[in-house]
Amino acid sequence: MAVVTVLDLMAGPDTGYLPLFSLGPAFACVAGSVRRSLLVGALAWALCLSAAGYDGLLLRHRATVALVSIAGVTAAAALAAAIRRSHERELADVRSVAEAAQRVLLRPVPRHAGHMRIAVSYTSAAAEARIGGDLYEVVPTPTGARVIVGDVQGKGLDAVETAAVVLGAFREAAPEEKDLETVGNRIERALNRRLEGEEFVTAVLAEIDTDHGVTLLNYGHPAPLLLRADGTVEPADPDAYAPPLGLASLGPQGPTPHKVQLAQGDQMLLYTDGVTEARNRHREFYPLAQRAHLLDQPDPERALETLRRDLVAYTHGPLHDDAAMLLLRYRATPEAPNIPADRTHQPSTAPVAPDEPPQQRRHASTGT
């Protein structure tokens, strides 16, 4: 409006700049409140009236049309601002429901399981969603714990519903069944009652044993990463890959368990493809194996947070897929009993790097 005022004073009465004052209230409704739109409209009307008086057009048809146009645009801007604020309140309510759903689905996991320390991190690709199709859970058992990390095909509410089915079946079967294969079969049956067509869920089931080992069952999921105490990094590839959960009837026989032995200081990282398929500006995938040294820190939660921040910094922008990571760290002396962390899945209050987008902040992790 200041630019229009200067142009009108310089051009004189022969050039019709007066209607352009209505641009002020038109733009004010984009981010401002109803009150701000009305105030800007009143200011535009006053400026137009002053400019018309300076040009000697106060009682002319041209000035009258400009003033009426500003009044009409101001009214429309106030209405648009009111509608936008209403939609913003509705979105805030939806976000609150999503956060409540997240706390139900992705509950705090135990920080200890026998000889294992456990840390988890979840980064959603969309801040508005707060939750996606990635899932994880740790269920304590009399002999240790059973773990699942998975990724649901697709996104949106359907993916969240499927994740709820998987987590519900796992939480019910994990403490009851004698082996992982039976747990996987129960999840498969639960999904068959829910899924249609070729929908599926990739997942890794793990059982923390009392003999310093972890038994793995891989349903078409990226292989966990083993980080030995001597710095060696290797994938825990299964002997043969099996179809994802939900596609057992279409593919070969299900997965066979394979066991990995861990020693003092060894770690195992379970993750979803949102980690390894994250790309930088040059379209290069995130080199997880080369960045695994970032986990070499005394505290597993801090180590996993360091890796998450590095992932976000590598992409130079928002992730295009959800990224879940669960870290198992072996300790020769058993830790405290299986007590879940008492932090709920709220946005992390840890300092965020200046170049980190707000929507990448972790909103699901264990802590002290």
Score class of each variant (00 low, 15 high):
Gln359Glu: 14
Ala169Phe: 02
Tyr54Ala: 11
Asp8Trp: 04
Thr5Ser: 09
His221Ser: 13
Ala42Gly: 05
Asp179Lys: 12
Val6Lys: 15
Arg193Leu: 00
Asp273Leu: 06
His115Cys: 08
Val40Gln: 03
Pro19Thr: 07
Gln267Ile: 02
Asp322Met: 09
Ala113Phe: 04
Thr272Val: 05
Tyr286Met: 07
Glu88Tyr: 09
Val233Ala: 11
Thr143Phe: 07
Asn185Lys: 11
Lys155Ser: 04
Arg302Leu: 15
Val34Cys: 10
Ala332Lys: 13
Ala52Trp: 03
Thr64Gly: 12
Pro175Gly: 07
Glu277Asp: 15
Ala263Arg: 14
Arg283Val: 12
Leu7His: 09
Ala203Arg: 02
Leu245His: 01
Arg186Val: 00
Glu181Ser: 13
Gly220His: 02
Arg171Leu: 04
Arg193Lys: 12
Arg89Ser: 11
Asp158Arg: 14
Leu227Glu: 00
Tyr330Lys: 05
Asp151Gln: 08
Val149Trp: 02
Ala46Val: 13
His61Cys: 09
Tyr136Ser: 05
His221Met: 14
Glu356Gln: 14
Glu356Gly: 06
Asp296His: 15
Ala101Asn: 09
Glu335Asn: 13
Val147Lys: 03
Arg36Pro: 03
Arg189Pro: 01
Ala98His: 08
Ala42Val: 06
Glu196His: 12
Ala313Gln: 13
Thr306Asn: 08
Ile118Met: 03
Ala101Gln: 11
Thr232Cys: 07
Gly156Glu: 03
Val260Tyr: 07
Val34Glu: 14
Gly56Arg: 09
Val120Trp: 01
Glu196Phe: 05
Arg283Tyr: 12
Val73Ser: 00
Phe285Glu: 08
Pro298Leu: 10
Pro222Val: 03
Glu181Asn: 09
Tyr314Arg: 07
Ala46His: 08
His112Lys: 10
Glu356Met: 15
Val233Arg: 07
His212Leu: 12
Glu234Tyr: 08
Val201Phe: 00
Leu57Gln: 11
Ile148Trp: 00
Arg62Met: 07
Val97Arg: 09
Arg60Met: 10
Ser50Glu: 10
Ala332Arg: 14
Leu205Arg: 01
Ala113Ser: 12
Arg171His: 02
Thr64Phe: 08
Arg85Gln: 14
Val3Lys: 07
Tyr241Val: 13
Asp179Ile: 10
Arg107Tyr: 03
Pro340Leu: 09
Gly56Val: 09
Ala98Glu: 04
Leu58Lys: 05
His87Val: 09
Ser365Trp: 05
Arg189Thr: 01
Ala353Phe: 10
Leu167Thr: 05
Arg189Lys: 14
Pro175Lys: 06
Gly156Tyr: 02
Ala350Cys: 06
Leu43Asn: 10
Asp342Gly: 13
Thr306Trp: 02
Gln261Pro: 06
His363Leu: 15
Glu305Gln: 13
Val120Ser: 04
Ala350Asn: 10
Lys155Tyr: 05
Ala248Leu: 10
Leu319Pro: 01
Thr74Arg: 02
Glu128Lys: 12
Pro318Gln: 11
Arg193Gln: 00
Asp296Cys: 15
Ala206Lys: 06
Thr368Ile: 15
Val149Thr: 04
Asp239Phe: 11
Asp55His: 13
Thr215Met: 12
Val149Leu: 04
Ala125Asn: 04
Gly254Val: 10
Gly197Lys: 08
Phe27His: 00
Ile83Phe: 10
Leu9Asn: 09
Ala248Ile: 01
Ala263Ile: 05
Tyr330Cys: 03
Arg85Asp: 12
Gly132Phe: 01
Arg84Trp: 04
Tyr122Ser: 03
Gln297Cys: 07
Leu67Ser: 06
Arg60Ser: 14
Ala92Glu: 14
Pro235Gly: 05
